[in-house]
């Protein structure tokens, strides 16, 4: 029987998932992706992981435990530098370590990625297929083409920017609550990932000092949006280390620039209603400020 690789639908999946899946698909390796995050998976993760880590990591642990007995190998890349010499985050780097203890060392495949995606994946491919040319072609096919994103602002509506990590926000339930509520209130919503890479990877001002790749993106997005939208909503999980610092930095700068800034912190206990009430109040405030 063909061996099957498991991919968790959590954390960096939302960034590099498509690329890895395409790579495995073109290479002809059997793979299984865990289902969309649901309550069962969250409970599984919360029960089995340390109580002090952030919710996204707990969810990732849930996915790991779900896939554990269904696949032969688990694919959890150790992405240290996604690009340039910028770190991901201590917890993402620690996920393979946690996976060792959940599933046993032999089951985990975790290529170390330091900027270069090709070589680690090439050696990984050699484990399953003998033909190196096939691996190279699969890699090249899987590589996504870069698109230049252009953002146009709708000047008739009120505008709000939602800043959050990709793994927090690309979740149906959260999307409904956050983006849905803003849209219901008549706002047009802009996300961090709507922006072009060039803007997100800028290196001026305080952004130069940030050495967490995704935090730098958030901060740059904040800088870009701060003079173009009417309000900014920053959404992060309880116990997220990087966000707690950079978020405060952004909040302080927003205060100086006098832009409405809403910080929402969520964890496994936060209720949907509470979040919606806060967002509605925030919208009300922006509207009042505009009508003055």
């Amino acid at each position: 029987m063909k061996k099957r690789i498991g991919i968790i639908r959590a954390l960096l999946y939302y960034r590099y998932g498509n690329f890895f899946i395409n790579f495995f698909k073109y290479l002809g390796i059997n793979y299984l992706i865990s289902p969309e995050t649901n309550k069962e998976l969250i409970d599984l993760g919360v029960k089995n992981s340390s109580s002090e880590v952030c919710l996204p990591l707990k969810i990732a642990c849930g996915h790991l435990l779900y896939l554990k007995d269904k696949v032969d190998y688990l694919f959890i890349p150790k992405i240290i530098y996604p690009y340039e010499k910028l770190y991901t985050c201590p917890k993402m780097m620690g996920l393979p370590t946690i996976a060792w203890y959940f599933c046993g060392k032999k089951k985990i495949i975790s290529p170390t990625i330091k900027r270069n995606f090709f070589l680690p994946l090439f050696f990984l491919g050699l484990k399953f297929k003998k033909n190196p040319f096939k691996i190279i072609s699969a890699y090249l096919k899987a590589k996504e083409k870069k698109e230049n994103k252009k953002l146009s602002f709708d000047n008739e509506k009120l505008k709000v920017a939602i800043l959050s990590h990709f793994y927090n926000i690309y979740n149906k339930e959260i999307e409904d609550i956050l983006i849905g509520t803003f849209k219901k209130e008549g706002f047009s919503v802009y996300l961090k990932d709507d922006l072009d890479e060039k803007i997100l990877r800028k290196k001026d001002g305080f952004a130069k000092n940030i050495r967490w790749a995704f935090e730098r993106e958030l901060y740059n997005a904040f800088k870009y949006y701060s003079d173009k939208v009417d309000g900014i909503c920053f959404f992060f999980s309880f116990a997220c280390g990087p966000d707690s610092l950079i978020g405060e930095m952004m909040a302080k700068e927003a205060k100086e620039k006098k832009i409405p800034f809403l910080t929402i912190i969520f964890d496994e206990h936060s209720g949907k209603e509470g979040m919606i009430t806060r967002i509605e109040a925030f919208c009300e405030m922006i509207k009042k400020k505009k009508s003055l």
Binding site: S50, K91, M93, G94, Y101, G241
Partner: peptide
């Protein structure tokens, strides 16, 4: 909520 030490905790 120390990030590195929480990873160390599992080890």
């Amino acid at each position: 909520t120390c990030m590195p030490e929480n990873i160390a905790l599992h080890s």
